[in-house]
């Protein structure tokens, strides 16, 4: 317990010095990790599909569709809003593919296909 208190004091002093203005602070505890899946062309328009993974001990995954290629900060926040997003809901079955239609992104599930191991390697049908 004394050891914990010493550590706390140490860290408190260390972090308090942030307010004096040394390093630039980030405002999240753990970050969403965001990875580009690929750019997809639909009717001569290019859309950008990203995979967002959020949570700490329990992860959830989301696909996001952007009109323009976004930039993300260290917490996973994008500089523009996605025009559509879709949660990978594993209680609905195994994901078989993604569909992009009318600027919307949709996850298609199937009970017959095996679960995709890497969500970045998903098949995307653009209509």
């Amino acid at each position: 317990m004394i050891n914990m208190k010493i550590k706390f004091l140490f860290f408190y002093v260390l972090i308090s010095s942030l307010f004096i203005g040394c390093a630039e602070e980030v405002d999240c505890f753990v970050a969403d990790s965001v990875a580009k899946v690929r750019a997809v062309s639909v009717n001569n328009k290019t859309y950008y599909v990203y995979l967002r993974t959020s949570g700490f001990s329990e992860k959830e995954h989301f696909y996001e569709l952007y009109k323009n290629e976004p930039k993300f900060d260290d917490c996973g926040k994008s500089n523009s809003r996605p025009i559509s997003e879709a949660h990978i809901d594993t209680t609905r079955g195994n994901m078989s593919k993604l569909i992009i239609k009318d600027s919307q992104i949709k996850v298609i599930y199937s009970k017959d296909t095996p679960q995709i191991v890497n969500y970045k390697n998903v098949q995307i049908d653009a209509k």
């Binding site: 390093a23 753990v30 001990s57 992860k59």
Partner: peptide, 25 residues
Amino acid sequence: DFEHFSKGHITDIPLAKGFVLKLPD
């Protein structure tokens, strides 16, 4: 609890701007 290595999950822990620690679940 946390997932096994086989799931490939990684937690990003930002310590300062431009310094994101990657901790595999």
